[in-house]
Design a protein around this nucleic acid. Structure first.
Length: 305
DNA sequence: AATGACAACAACCGCCGCTGG
DNA sequence: GCCAGCGGCGGTTGTTGTCAT
């Protein structure tokens, strides 16, 4: 039903865009009485709106501390990585972006990545499949090379199928999702603490990307991996402080730790400037972020993401 | 200037889980 | 235990602004 140009529902709630007068009423009431029960807020503030509508308006638009304006490249990077982890958990993602609402992030994602995702889906699937095939092949070769090891080929094949751990293709997808964006700014990844400081990062990421029943020193680990929002280098894009991913450890079976073919390769994010890129042996096997996607698929005989 | 495509944003809808009666 | 009310969340749609043709 339409009334004076506004859409009025049968139960009497007004719908459609909020007027400045309504915003003022809601703001004044909430500031005075706090949020409380939204149904009563709507009634007591003299608004002909549903409680839901009031809550949404307050949370997404009127609440103090909201950031207005474009999503920054840093925020964009966080959204990309968190989305790779959690999917469409917009409210969860929003908790790590102060001043941004879940609605805002959701809209941003749909606007910027939904189409891209669609168009690159085929390509992504193909790349993932190639990586998966290569990984499995390398695992088998690796297993055959260590006949005396308890890790037999069968065990490894079994491991590849188990649901107890993250599958390699899952990691591949997450990383491709994270790093396959077009613009260099997508790759300005915030600093991540090294292996000794991963507690300072989001614990979910650290745990989430460890797959394998081997200890971290024996198998794949993406050290740290998530964002330190207080990172002093965040946003810097000059060559000195660009963020890099470096190999920080290699196979449990390669005692020389020289990144040669048989080993598993561990990676660590860091920047040249803050010396986070040197690996456990002091070597700097640095892969610039911009080249990561290529690096993933060109690690020779070594294991790759 | 008119128009269409697209992006960005605001708001609604439906579902679900929680809670209190 | 059941049920209604409510709030939170994700999906979707509607509106407005901008830009290219």
């Amino acid at each position: 039903m339409w009334f004076w140009g506004f859409n009025v529902q049968e139960q009497g709630w007004r719908k459609g865009p909020w007027t400045p007068e309504e915003d003022k009423l809601l703001s004044e009431y909430v500031n005075l009485h706090s949020e409380g029960r939204w149904s009563s807020v709507a009634r007591c503030a003299g608004l002909n709106r549903s409680g839901k509508s009031c809550r949404l308006r307050w949370v997404n638009y009127l609440r103090p501390g909201l950031k207005r304006g474009l999503i920054t490249p840093q925020e964009e990077g966080i959204i990309i990585e968190l989305h790779a982890l959690w999917g469409n958990k917009w409210s969860t993602i929003a908790r790590y972006l102060p001043g941004r609402t879940d609605n805002e992030i959701k809209n941003f994602w749909r606007t910027h990545f939904k189409k891209k995702e669609k168009s690159s889906l085929k390509q992504q699937k193909r790349r993932s499949q190639i990586l998966k095939d290569k990984l499995q092949k390398d695992q088998l070769i690796h297993a055959q090379q260590e006949n005396t090891s308890t890790k037999t080929t069968e065990a490894l094949e079994g491991k590849m199928n188990t649901n107890d751990h993250h599958q390699p293709q899952e990691i591949t997808k997450a990383l491709y999702d994270t790093f396959s964006a077009d613009t260099p700014s997508d790759h300005n990844i915030a600093d991540v603490n090294g292996p000794d400081h991963h507690q300072q990062c989001f614990p979910v990421m650290y745990q989430d990307l460890v797959w394998s029943d081997a200890t971290p020193d024996q198998d794949f680990v993406l050290w740290g991996g998530l964002w330190n929002l207080d990172d002093p280098f965040a946003g810097r894009t000059d060559s000195t402080n660009q963020y890099y991913m470096s190999k920080v450890a290699v196979s449990q079976n390669n005692n020389n730790n020289n990144n040669q073919a048989t080993g598993h390769v561990h990676y660590q994010y860091g920047s040249v400037a803050d010396n986070n890129c040197s690996n456990k042996n002091g070597n700097n096997n640095i892969i610039p972020i911009q080249n990561q996607a290529r690096a993933f698929s060109s690690c020779g005989g070594s294991y790759i993401f």
